[in-house]
Amino acid sequence: MVSVINTVDTSHEDMIHDAQMDYYGTRLATCSSDRTVKIFDVRNGGQILVADLRGHEGPVWQVAWAHPMFGNILASCSYDRKVIIWKEENGTWDKMYEYTGHESSVNSVCWGPYDFGLILACGSSDGAISLLTFTGDQQWDVKKISNAHTIGCNAVSWAPAVVPGSLIDQPSGQKPNYVKRFVSGGCDNLVKLWKEEDGQWKEDQKLEAHSDWVRDVGWAPSIGLPTSTIASCSQDGRVFIWTCDDPAGNTWTAKLLHKFNDVVWHVSWSITGNILAVSGGDNKVTLWKESMDGQWACISDVSKGQGAVSTITDTQQNEQ
């Protein structure tokens, strides 16, 4: 059954804007308007404050854990226009890198799949998206997509490195030719897909369906199927599921998941890519699942502020 396994009192002095656990689910990072990022050890239902990271001069909007193969690395972005990459070394967290190349609030950070090395995408209200690549020896290579979204970029999310449908274009025997791709959403109401070609980032697709600012995008993890799936949510209260069966990635079809009464701020995919968690201005969290016939249904509702995710159906696992 669905059960609460831990309730962490973060002691942040202002509202929390993001919470995320690391790869193994042993540590929790939170960030808040009180300008701090906190890391908790949450193993076995405990909550030990491991680090209280100070360095931002404004509210911290989002955090992102890097893949553990690179060590314990956390990125955070803030209203203060900075992106800070923190690293744990010998048990203490320190700044590894501070990126100040944006001219307005940085709203979203997302680490790329580990196959690409340590690469971070940052979306900012100055309209640009930065891609920071660790080149070793404390060096970071910065690529900037200027004016990626007019007015501002609100969210970035990487495509999984397992490129579905790679069957055809993949030259035999070589390392699968993973193309770096990510999706972004912005104040131009657009969802945009980007891909790297010859070391340059190019706009690949422009998906239009939202009627207001796109607040979050999430590229679903792949389980090896030749379908790409992206979820996007917006100020207009709509959540769209975008799918592409075309191996070339050119034809995307949108499906409306639901129209909420208030802004939808966040979408998150489960590891198998079949459940979507949706949260927004109505202070509710809902879980959505695609049925066998392709319809999206709400399977649960995290009741207001307290209580557990109560599953509406618990039978889906016994489907024959």
Partner: peptide, 8 residues
């Protein structure tokens, strides 16, 4: 800013 969120 988001004041609520859920993440897998």
């Amino acid at each position: 800013p988001r004041t609520s969120g859920a993440r897998f």
